[in-house]
Amino acid sequence: MYRLLILILAATLLSACGSIDSETHGIYTEIPDISIIMDTQGISDVKEAQPLFIEVSENDTLVDDAEISLEVWRAVEEISASEVYTVSQRDDGLYEANVDIDVPGLYFAKAIVSAGNVEATPLQYFIVGQLNPQEHELLNEILPGDNEHTGGHH
């Protein structure tokens, strides 16, 4: 009887071993390693045709056949008021759109990216000049944490 009890206890402890981690997904599917970076640093003032760069890479290699369009709108307005820009490919494999900024404030930029079987819709905010009180409030809502964000000039 004691042998039986030891056997049961050992089996019970063994059954608790083993765990599943994020690597286990690889057994069932291939998780795409795609990175999309939107660089809004070129948009610094209230003026026309400022560059917004987009980098699409898969497994650390630039993807040069993506189809991309870009929508930009003031954060205090609806997306339906967005300006749609064509995105062209540069020689170095990056993508570029020239964005017009009429007034300072908080903006949203959304890229619609189609690359092979991958569809993506990354969304990014950026600030040009000073924010008005409504935009301050909105910025504090969309940013994680409870910190008060003041925004500011480039």
């Binding site: 939107m38 660089d39 809004t40 640093q41 070129g42 760069f53 980098e55 170095d92 990056l94 949203f108 990354p122 969304l123 990014q124 905010y125 950026f126 600030i127 910025l139 969309i142 940013l143 964000h149 003041t150 925004g151 500011g152 480039h154």
Partner: peptide, 19 residues
């Protein structure tokens, strides 16, 4: 590539990715 061509950001608050 961006660092080569553009000024470094003054604050990460100035732009960022959203859900």
């Amino acid at each position: 590539w961006a660092a080569e061509n553009l000024p470094a950001p003054t604050s990460e608050i100035l732009s960022g990715r959203l859900p």
